[in-house]
Design a protein around this nucleic acid. Sequence first.
RNA 1: CGGGGUGUAGCAUAGUGGUAGUGUGUUCGCUUUGGGAGCGAAUGGUCUGGGUUCGAUUCCCAGCACCCCGACCA
Length: 429
Amino acid sequence: MHNIIFDPIFYLAYNIAMFQSKLFTKTRKEAPKDEVSKNAQLLIRGGFIHKEVAGVYTMLPLGLNVIKKIENIIRQEMNAVNGIEMRTTVLQNKDIWEASNRWDDESVADIWFKVQLKNGGELGLSFTNEEAYANMLKQYINSYRDLPIYPYDFKNIFRNEIRSKSGIMRGREFYWKALYSFSRDEDEHNIFYEKMKTAYQNIFNAVGIGDTTYITLASGGSFSQYSHEFQSITDAGEDTIYLDESSGVAVNKEIYNDEVINQLGLDKGKLVEKRAIEVGNIFSLGTRFSEPFNLTYKDENGEEKLVIMGSYGIGLSRLMGTIVELSSDERGIIWPESVAPFKVHLLSFGKNEEARALYDSLTASGVEVLYDDREVNPGEKLADSDLIGIPYRVVVSEKSITAGGVEIKRRNSLDSDIVSIGEVLGRIK
RNA sequence: CGGGGUGUAGCAUAGUGGUAGUGUGUUCGCUUUGGGAGCGAAUGGUCUGGGUUCGAUUCCCAGCACCCCGACCA
């Protein structure tokens, strides 16, 4: 649970409570016609995101709240495995990328955005962080005593996708978390790698998509046979995987063949083809980047050794889109409580005095509330509430007061209850 | 990058070689308060450039943007 909202620093990090009359975004009945994906349609209709150009979306106040919730879940898990948060730059030095042979467009499949400097030089907009970390850490890693370390950051990165699509699930600019592990040897690396598998499962469980997210074996590059992707089953996904539903093991189509099936001890007859979206991946890098940057340390015997690296990424905006793809109904989004923009949607039907008192007492108790204090008809407030998808809907109306208090309804349930004002806090904890 | 499609008001749409219509939104008035309620009024529009034509939003060409399929995708 998010008792961290009481942390004074985190408290300032997002909109913990809000009057809907002051929320400048509006809901809409219809999605723009150029948005086909469910996630973009619902997120735009609800006022979570705004499209700037294809694959580039502004996070509006409601959307930012969701991103911050996801970010904090990830942060807790990363810190739990001794991750250390920092922030790498977006503008990237060409020389560094030439050192790893990833500056040429040919070598990275036209993924770069590059910008010109006034003096004629050239910079790249970061699309991943291996080079930045490996190069920087040369200054700080000398001894075996300096290892292992696990720096990570959240930031917007840029990928010059030839065709961006699927709403916020494949953007040209998107928000992600990347952690890199720097270990002394393969054993130390492998132990951490397994810890990260668990951490990632914890994250996907916590954001409410654990049931449909599977560890999937994918190609591993030159330093390990496999990498591990975390694939959520949805027809909106872009990947094809073969899933053994009994064991929960899946294989990406890109490496699917008889040899791999046998090697993994899977029964080909039990594998089911599924569409899925990659919400995270972990990857053993070996010395792919420590070598070009000569990232070494002196071991106990004074011997110089290359650092063993691993990378661990999650696209937060893609994850947000995936959650919407997996959790909605014909009326709108159904946010899992852990990532909902607010915990309570408080609706006043002409009872602003009573509703305001409840708003004050809830926020004083640290409950995140979106209070719909607008002068609009009940039907509109109810429709908006379903569209926005906040877990608890609390209605204060003449009818509810006559019946003994306020009406509480969960977004994912058809039933509602009347409870006294004093009981509200207890019911939503 | 290959193929296909679409550009009309904030949004969704109709239609036309000659005055561009509807829904929704927004504003105002009245009414209404448990499922985007009602009545009335107002507001607001043909992607950009070129061509054909007496006249182009419509036809032609180019550009740009967006969407879809494929390819690509640590």
